[in-house]
Amino acid sequence: MNHTINTTQKTANATPLETGYNFAFLDEQTKRMVRRATLKAVAIPGYQVPFASREMPMPYGWGTGGIQLTASIIGQQDTLKVTDQGADDTTNAVSIRSFFQRTTGVATTEETNKATLIQTRHRIPEQPLTEDHILVYQVPIPEPLRWMEPRETETRKMHAHEEYGVMHVKLYEDIAHHGHIATSFDYPVQIAGRYIMSPSPIPKFDNPKMDNCPALQIFGAGREQRIYAIPPYTNVHSLDFEDHPFSVQTWDEVCGLCGAEDSYLDEIILDNEGNRMFVCSDSNYCQQRLKAGHAGAMTAPQGQPAATRTESNEENNA
Protein backbone atom coordinates (compact mmCIF):
# COMPACT_ATOMS: atom_id res chain seq x y z
CA MET A 1 0.00 0.00 0.00
CA ASN A 2 0.92 3.62 -0.19
CA HIS A 3 2.78 4.92 2.77
CA THR A 4 1.09 8.25 2.89
CA ILE A 5 1.89 10.19 5.98
CA ASN A 6 -1.50 10.36 7.46
CA THR A 7 -1.46 9.86 11.14
CA THR A 8 -3.88 12.63 11.92
CA GLN A 9 -6.83 10.35 12.23
CA LYS A 10 -5.23 7.25 13.70
CA THR A 11 -7.91 5.47 15.58
CA ALA A 12 -7.11 6.77 18.96
CA ASN A 13 -10.83 6.98 19.28
CA ALA A 14 -12.14 4.13 21.28
CA THR A 15 -13.07 1.20 18.96
CA PRO A 16 -11.23 -1.67 20.63
CA LEU A 17 -9.53 -4.28 18.47
CA GLU A 18 -11.35 -7.60 18.41
CA THR A 19 -9.25 -10.38 19.82
CA GLY A 20 -9.08 -13.86 18.39
CA TYR A 21 -9.09 -12.78 14.78
CA ASN A 22 -6.27 -12.49 12.28
CA PHE A 23 -5.45 -9.01 10.99
CA ALA A 24 -8.36 -8.01 8.75
CA PHE A 25 -10.41 -11.07 9.65
CA LEU A 26 -9.31 -13.37 6.80
CA ASP A 27 -6.53 -15.89 7.38
CA GLU A 28 -3.26 -15.35 5.55
CA GLN A 29 -3.75 -18.17 3.04
CA THR A 30 -7.10 -16.77 2.00
CA LYS A 31 -5.67 -13.31 1.59
CA ARG A 32 -2.88 -14.76 -0.51
CA MET A 33 -5.42 -16.52 -2.72
CA VAL A 34 -7.42 -13.31 -3.16
CA ARG A 35 -4.25 -11.34 -3.93
CA ARG A 36 -3.24 -13.87 -6.57
CA ALA A 37 -6.61 -13.51 -8.25
CA THR A 38 -6.33 -9.73 -7.99
CA LEU A 39 -2.90 -9.73 -9.62
CA LYS A 40 -4.24 -11.82 -12.45
CA ALA A 41 -7.17 -9.45 -12.81
CA VAL A 42 -4.84 -6.47 -13.03
CA ALA A 43 -2.75 -8.27 -15.62
CA ILE A 44 -5.79 -8.91 -17.84
CA PRO A 45 -7.85 -5.72 -17.58
CA GLY A 46 -11.57 -6.39 -17.50
CA TYR A 47 -11.26 -10.18 -17.36
CA GLN A 48 -13.29 -11.85 -14.60
CA VAL A 49 -10.98 -14.01 -12.53
CA PRO A 50 -12.72 -16.74 -10.53
CA PHE A 51 -11.69 -16.99 -6.88
CA ALA A 52 -12.69 -19.10 -3.91
CA SER A 53 -14.94 -16.57 -2.23
CA ARG A 54 -15.30 -17.09 1.52
CA GLU A 55 -18.26 -16.75 3.79
CA MET A 56 -18.08 -13.36 5.42
CA PRO A 57 -19.93 -12.25 8.55
CA MET A 58 -22.52 -10.44 6.46
CA PRO A 59 -25.12 -11.49 3.90
CA TYR A 60 -24.39 -11.84 0.21
CA GLY A 61 -25.31 -8.66 -1.57
CA TRP A 62 -23.99 -6.46 1.21
CA GLY A 63 -20.48 -6.29 -0.16
CA THR A 64 -18.88 -9.64 0.61
CA GLY A 65 -16.74 -9.38 -2.52
CA GLY A 66 -15.53 -5.88 -1.82
CA ILE A 67 -14.83 -6.67 1.83
CA GLN A 68 -12.67 -9.67 0.91
CA LEU A 69 -10.68 -7.54 -1.52
CA THR A 70 -10.22 -4.82 1.07
CA ALA A 71 -9.26 -7.36 3.75
CA SER A 72 -6.63 -8.93 1.57
CA ILE A 73 -4.88 -5.75 0.47
CA ILE A 74 -5.25 -3.51 3.52
CA GLY A 75 -2.09 -2.77 5.52
CA GLN A 76 -1.31 -0.98 8.79
CA GLN A 77 -0.28 2.13 6.84
CA ASP A 78 -3.58 2.45 5.04
CA THR A 79 -6.33 4.92 5.64
CA LEU A 80 -9.70 3.46 4.79
CA LYS A 81 -12.78 5.20 3.49
CA VAL A 82 -16.03 3.32 2.95
CA THR A 83 -18.97 4.75 1.05
CA ASP A 84 -22.37 3.44 0.14
CA GLN A 85 -24.19 5.28 -2.67
CA GLY A 86 -21.61 8.02 -2.19
CA ALA A 87 -22.43 8.58 1.48
CA ASP A 88 -20.12 7.72 4.36
CA ASP A 89 -22.83 7.34 6.97
CA THR A 90 -25.30 4.86 5.51
CA THR A 91 -25.77 1.44 7.12
CA ASN A 92 -23.58 -0.51 4.76
CA ALA A 93 -20.72 1.97 4.91
CA VAL A 94 -20.88 2.32 8.68
CA SER A 95 -20.88 -1.40 9.37
CA ILE A 96 -18.07 -2.20 6.94
CA ARG A 97 -15.98 0.66 8.32
CA SER A 98 -16.49 -0.50 11.88
CA PHE A 99 -15.71 -4.06 10.82
CA PHE A 100 -12.28 -2.98 9.63
CA GLN A 101 -11.73 -0.71 12.60
CA ARG A 102 -12.31 -3.63 14.91
CA THR A 103 -10.34 -6.21 12.96
CA THR A 104 -7.38 -4.12 11.78
CA GLY A 105 -7.24 -0.97 13.83
CA VAL A 106 -6.21 1.06 10.76
CA ALA A 107 -7.10 4.70 10.43
CA THR A 108 -10.40 5.50 8.78
CA THR A 109 -11.48 8.72 7.18
CA GLU A 110 -14.39 10.18 5.32
CA GLU A 111 -12.22 12.49 3.30
CA THR A 112 -11.44 11.23 -0.17
CA ASN A 113 -8.07 12.93 -0.42
CA LYS A 114 -6.84 11.49 2.89
CA ALA A 115 -7.83 7.92 2.08
CA THR A 116 -5.51 5.42 0.43
CA LEU A 117 -8.06 2.65 0.13
CA ILE A 118 -11.68 3.37 -0.70
CA GLN A 119 -14.31 0.68 -0.64
CA THR A 120 -17.34 1.86 -2.51
CA ARG A 121 -20.80 0.70 -3.35
CA HIS A 122 -22.46 2.22 -6.43
CA ARG A 123 -20.49 5.50 -6.67
CA ILE A 124 -17.08 6.86 -7.56
CA PRO A 125 -16.12 9.87 -5.40
CA GLU A 126 -16.58 13.24 -7.09
CA GLN A 127 -13.11 14.38 -6.10
CA PRO A 128 -10.64 13.19 -8.77
CA LEU A 129 -8.70 10.12 -7.68
CA THR A 130 -4.92 9.99 -7.73
CA GLU A 131 -2.21 7.35 -7.98
CA ASP A 132 -2.32 7.16 -4.17
CA HIS A 133 -5.82 5.70 -4.23
CA ILE A 134 -7.10 2.19 -4.64
CA LEU A 135 -10.80 1.95 -5.31
CA VAL A 136 -12.57 -1.29 -4.32
CA TYR A 137 -16.02 -1.87 -5.80
CA GLN A 138 -18.73 -4.15 -4.47
CA VAL A 139 -20.32 -6.03 -7.36
CA PRO A 140 -23.60 -7.95 -7.32
CA ILE A 141 -23.58 -9.36 -10.88
CA PRO A 142 -20.18 -9.24 -12.57
CA GLU A 143 -21.29 -10.66 -15.93
CA PRO A 144 -22.42 -7.93 -18.33
CA LEU A 145 -23.65 -10.53 -20.85
CA ARG A 146 -25.86 -12.28 -18.31
CA TRP A 147 -28.94 -10.31 -19.26
CA MET A 148 -28.70 -11.59 -22.82
CA GLU A 149 -27.20 -15.03 -22.24
CA PRO A 150 -28.09 -16.99 -19.11
CA ARG A 151 -25.52 -19.78 -19.61
CA GLU A 152 -22.16 -19.25 -17.92
CA THR A 153 -20.42 -21.71 -20.28
CA GLU A 154 -21.67 -19.65 -23.19
CA THR A 155 -20.76 -16.23 -21.80
CA ARG A 156 -17.22 -17.43 -21.11
CA LYS A 157 -16.88 -18.43 -24.73
CA MET A 158 -18.33 -15.13 -25.83
CA HIS A 159 -15.70 -13.29 -23.80
CA ALA A 160 -12.94 -15.57 -25.07
CA HIS A 161 -13.89 -15.06 -28.71
CA GLU A 162 -14.80 -11.41 -28.27
CA GLU A 163 -18.36 -12.00 -29.48
CA TYR A 164 -19.87 -8.85 -28.09
CA GLY A 165 -22.62 -8.13 -30.62
CA VAL A 166 -25.35 -8.93 -28.09
CA MET A 167 -24.30 -6.05 -25.82
CA HIS A 168 -25.41 -3.71 -28.55
CA VAL A 169 -28.65 -5.66 -28.92
CA LYS A 170 -29.41 -4.56 -25.37
CA LEU A 171 -28.69 -0.93 -26.17
CA TYR A 172 -30.70 -1.28 -29.40
CA GLU A 173 -33.70 -2.40 -27.34
CA ASP A 174 -33.34 0.67 -25.17
CA ILE A 175 -33.44 3.03 -28.12
CA ALA A 176 -36.28 1.13 -29.80
CA HIS A 177 -38.45 1.39 -26.70
CA HIS A 178 -37.40 4.69 -25.15
CA GLY A 179 -35.93 6.68 -28.00
CA HIS A 180 -32.58 6.92 -26.25
CA ILE A 181 -30.21 4.64 -24.36
CA ALA A 182 -32.14 4.37 -21.12
CA THR A 183 -29.60 2.25 -19.26
CA SER A 184 -28.55 4.62 -16.50
CA PHE A 185 -26.49 2.45 -14.18
CA ASP A 186 -24.26 -0.59 -14.62
CA TYR A 187 -23.60 0.78 -18.09
CA PRO A 188 -21.37 -1.68 -19.99
CA VAL A 189 -17.82 -0.63 -20.77
CA GLN A 190 -15.04 -2.04 -22.88
CA ILE A 191 -11.65 -2.12 -21.19
CA ALA A 192 -8.49 -1.42 -23.17
CA GLY A 193 -10.30 -2.35 -26.39
CA ARG A 194 -10.80 -5.94 -25.31
CA TYR A 195 -13.02 -7.21 -22.50
CA ILE A 196 -16.51 -5.93 -21.96
CA MET A 197 -17.06 -5.37 -18.28
CA SER A 198 -19.82 -4.46 -15.90
CA PRO A 199 -18.74 -1.38 -13.94
CA SER A 200 -20.95 -2.54 -11.01
CA PRO A 201 -24.15 -0.57 -10.49
CA ILE A 202 -22.54 2.87 -10.52
CA PRO A 203 -24.56 5.53 -12.35
CA LYS A 204 -23.36 6.08 -15.90
CA PHE A 205 -22.52 9.57 -14.68
CA ASP A 206 -19.42 7.97 -13.15
CA ASN A 207 -18.35 6.02 -16.24
CA PRO A 208 -16.15 8.81 -17.65
CA LYS A 209 -14.28 8.92 -14.33
CA MET A 210 -13.07 5.36 -14.91
CA ASP A 211 -11.42 6.22 -18.18
CA ASN A 212 -7.69 6.80 -17.84
CA CYS A 213 -8.07 6.99 -14.07
CA PRO A 214 -4.75 7.25 -12.16
CA ALA A 215 -6.07 5.03 -9.36
CA LEU A 216 -6.18 1.26 -9.41
CA GLN A 217 -9.79 0.05 -9.55
CA ILE A 218 -10.65 -3.47 -8.42
CA PHE A 219 -14.03 -5.16 -8.38
CA GLY A 220 -15.12 -7.99 -6.12
CA ALA A 221 -18.24 -10.13 -6.50
CA GLY A 222 -18.53 -12.38 -3.45
CA ARG A 223 -21.57 -14.44 -4.30
CA GLU A 224 -20.56 -14.85 -7.95
CA GLN A 225 -16.92 -15.47 -6.95
CA ARG A 226 -15.27 -13.15 -9.44
CA ILE A 227 -12.60 -10.48 -9.22
CA TYR A 228 -11.76 -8.07 -12.02
CA ALA A 229 -9.82 -4.87 -12.32
CA ILE A 230 -8.96 -1.76 -14.27
CA PRO A 231 -5.26 -0.89 -13.90
CA PRO A 232 -4.31 2.79 -13.61
CA TYR A 233 -4.39 4.81 -16.84
CA THR A 234 -6.46 2.29 -18.80
CA ASN A 235 -8.78 3.15 -21.61
CA VAL A 236 -12.41 2.61 -20.60
CA HIS A 237 -14.96 2.99 -23.38
CA SER A 238 -18.69 3.12 -22.69
CA LEU A 239 -20.52 1.27 -25.47
CA ASP A 240 -22.77 3.28 -27.76
CA PHE A 241 -24.05 3.70 -31.31
CA GLU A 242 -22.62 6.13 -33.85
CA ASP A 243 -25.93 7.96 -34.06
CA HIS A 244 -26.69 7.60 -30.34
CA PRO A 245 -23.45 8.50 -28.57
CA PHE A 246 -22.87 7.82 -24.89
CA SER A 247 -24.00 10.64 -22.62
CA VAL A 248 -24.30 11.09 -18.86
CA GLN A 249 -27.18 12.29 -16.71
CA THR A 250 -27.70 16.02 -16.23
CA TRP A 251 -29.92 17.92 -13.83
CA ASP A 252 -31.77 21.20 -14.09
CA GLU A 253 -31.22 21.71 -10.36
CA VAL A 254 -28.05 22.26 -8.38
CA CYS A 255 -27.24 20.78 -4.96
CA GLY A 256 -29.59 22.35 -2.40
CA LEU A 257 -26.90 22.38 0.27
CA CYS A 258 -23.65 23.31 -1.43
CA GLY A 259 -24.82 24.58 -4.78
CA ALA A 260 -22.62 22.16 -6.73
CA GLU A 261 -23.45 21.98 -10.43
CA ASP A 262 -21.05 19.24 -11.38
CA SER A 263 -21.92 16.44 -8.99
CA TYR A 264 -24.31 13.51 -9.08
CA LEU A 265 -27.52 14.56 -7.33
CA ASP A 266 -29.95 12.55 -5.23
CA GLU A 267 -33.55 13.63 -5.18
CA ILE A 268 -35.07 13.84 -1.69
CA ILE A 269 -38.81 14.12 -1.20
CA LEU A 270 -39.44 16.58 1.64
CA ASP A 271 -43.16 16.39 2.38
CA ASN A 272 -46.51 15.23 1.10
CA GLU A 273 -46.92 18.44 -0.91
CA GLY A 274 -44.45 17.17 -3.47
CA ASN A 275 -41.63 19.45 -2.37
CA ARG A 276 -38.25 18.03 -3.05
CA MET A 277 -34.61 18.94 -2.94
CA PHE A 278 -31.56 17.73 -4.73
CA VAL A 279 -28.34 17.06 -2.84
CA CYS A 280 -24.92 15.70 -3.75
CA SER A 281 -24.88 11.94 -3.38
CA ASP A 282 -21.19 12.20 -2.42
CA SER A 283 -21.58 13.47 1.15
CA ASN A 284 -17.89 14.19 1.63
CA TYR A 285 -17.74 16.32 -1.50
CA CYS A 286 -20.74 18.30 -0.28
CA GLN A 287 -19.10 18.82 3.14
CA GLN A 288 -15.85 20.01 1.60
CA ARG A 289 -17.70 22.54 -0.48
CA LEU A 290 -19.69 23.79 2.50
CA LYS A 291 -16.45 24.25 4.41
CA ALA A 292 -15.00 26.14 1.51
CA GLY A 293 -17.91 28.58 1.82
CA HIS A 294 -20.17 27.45 -1.00
CA ALA A 295 -23.84 27.57 -0.25
CA GLY A 296 -27.01 26.34 -1.88
CA ALA A 297 -30.62 27.44 -1.68
CA MET A 298 -31.35 25.32 1.38
CA THR A 299 -28.12 25.68 3.34
CA ALA A 300 -28.68 26.01 7.09
CA PRO A 301 -27.96 29.49 8.48
CA GLN A 302 -24.44 30.19 9.74
CA GLY A 303 -23.58 28.79 13.13
CA GLN A 304 -25.94 25.87 12.96
CA PRO A 305 -24.85 22.48 11.69
CA ALA A 306 -25.83 21.90 8.10
CA ALA A 307 -28.47 19.30 7.60
CA THR A 308 -26.32 16.96 5.62
CA ARG A 309 -26.26 13.31 6.15
CA THR A 310 -22.66 13.32 7.36
CA GLU A 311 -22.10 14.57 10.88
CA SER A 312 -19.58 12.12 12.22
CA ASN A 313 -16.65 14.13 10.94
CA GLU A 314 -17.68 17.30 12.68
CA GLU A 315 -16.26 16.48 16.08
CA ASN A 316 -12.86 15.67 14.63
CA ASN A 317 -12.55 18.85 12.71
CA ALA A 318 -14.37 21.23 14.97
Binding site: E163, G165, Y172, I175, E242, D243
Partner: peptide, 17 residues
Protein backbone atom coordinates in the same frame (compact mmCIF):
# COMPACT_ATOMS: atom_id res chain seq x y z
CA UNK B 1 -36.14 -5.72 -34.75
CA UNK B 2 -33.35 -6.58 -32.32
CA UNK B 3 -33.59 -10.23 -33.34
CA UNK B 4 -32.95 -9.30 -36.94
CA UNK B 5 -30.30 -6.74 -36.03
CA UNK B 6 -28.28 -9.08 -33.84
CA UNK B 7 -26.15 -10.54 -36.62
CA UNK B 8 -25.49 -7.09 -38.02
CA UNK B 9 -24.29 -5.84 -34.65
CA UNK B 10 -22.30 -9.05 -34.26
CA UNK B 11 -20.23 -8.17 -37.31
CA UNK B 12 -19.60 -4.66 -36.04
CA UNK B 13 -22.45 -2.53 -37.38
CA UNK B 14 -22.75 0.37 -34.93
CA UNK B 15 -25.22 2.73 -36.56
CA UNK B 16 -28.68 2.43 -35.02
CA UNK B 17 -30.51 4.01 -37.96
Amino acid sequence: GANIGERLMGVGMRHYG
